[in-house]
């Protein structure tokens, strides 16, 4: 038996279980009970559900995570792309300052700067080096993070920043500590009725950018390939 048929039959199991449940209930539940009682139950059940609907509408519901529209996500994605483009061209004055998270300077003791990363996903961080004419040992750094949005949820504040830490001549970027967030969403729509393809993954995966201004005589050691050219 091919895999397709196997998957088809496995997929049928919940359907068959559902049908069996429905058949069992329709057979077992007594239809011709007291007419008066049935009418009362029908009225009470209907009123209860409508009442619950009204109550839900009026009760305060906080905190609620805002969800962005597809257009808004597209705008965030565009802003991210523009930012990266400008950063690569080293047009610092054109960079959106809302992405700037921190800035610092560091004095190197030697002529070598090592880039390190602690964490699982080194691709989440990109280092852009701008060579400057200077004989000093001073490194200027700016940390930016572009927009992050998962499933349209406005949760950027919940996602911690990478931490850039100097240990001697090594700039180590630490990934945030592992955390898990679960969100609940209610939908009044039936997916079976959806006429448009909504399976599009609604995510804007921003990056952490470290913009370094490094004197030309400094050599950079980048074993993980964090640098972006």
């Amino acid at each position: 038996m091919s895999n397709t048929w196997m998957i088809f039959f496995i997929g049928l199991i919940p359907v068959v279980i559902g049908i069996l449940i429905v058949l069992y209930i329709t057979k077992k539940v007594k239809y011709k009970g007291s007419l008066r009682l049935n009418k009362i139950v029908i009225m009470i059940y209907f009123s209860l559900l409508i009442g619950v609907g009204i109550v839900y509408e009026i009760i305060p519901k906080e905190p609620i995570v805002e969800q962005l529209s597809e257009e808004q996500l597209q705008q965030l994605q565009t802003e991210n792309e523009v930012f990266e483009e400008k950063l690569l061209k080293q047009e610092e004055n054109k960079l959106s300052q809302k992405f700037l998270k921190e800035e610092w300077t560091h004095e190197l003791s030697g002529n070598t700067l090592t880039l390190g990363y602690i964490g699982n996903d080194s691709y989440s961080t990109k280092v852009v080096v701008e060579w400057i004419d200077s004989t000093a040992q001073k490194i200027e750094g700016k940390v930016y993070r572009s927009h992050i949005n998962l499933y349209g949820l406005k949760i950027e504040d919940k996602i911690p920043l990478h931490v850039a830490e100097w240990t001697g001549n090594e700039l180590v970027i630490h990934e945030p500590v592992e955390q898990e967030f679960t969100f609940e969403q209610f939908s009044n729509e039936l997916n079976v009725f959806q006429q448009t393809d909504t399976m599009e993954i609604r995510m804007v995966r921003g990056f952490t950018y470290i913009h370094l201004k490094v004197p030309k005589h400094i050599e950079i050691v980048d074993p993980l390939g964090l640098q972006m050219y």
Binding site: G119, N120, D121, S124, I148, L150, Y151, L153, I155, K158, I159, P160, H162, E175, P176, V177, E178, Q179, E180, F181, T182, F183, E184, Q185, F186, S187, R205, T208
Partner: peptide, 10 residues
């Protein structure tokens, strides 16, 4: 993303 897991239950 960035070591943060996000789950969405609909």
């Amino acid at each position: 993303i960035n070591n943060i897991s996000i789950n969405l239950n609909i």
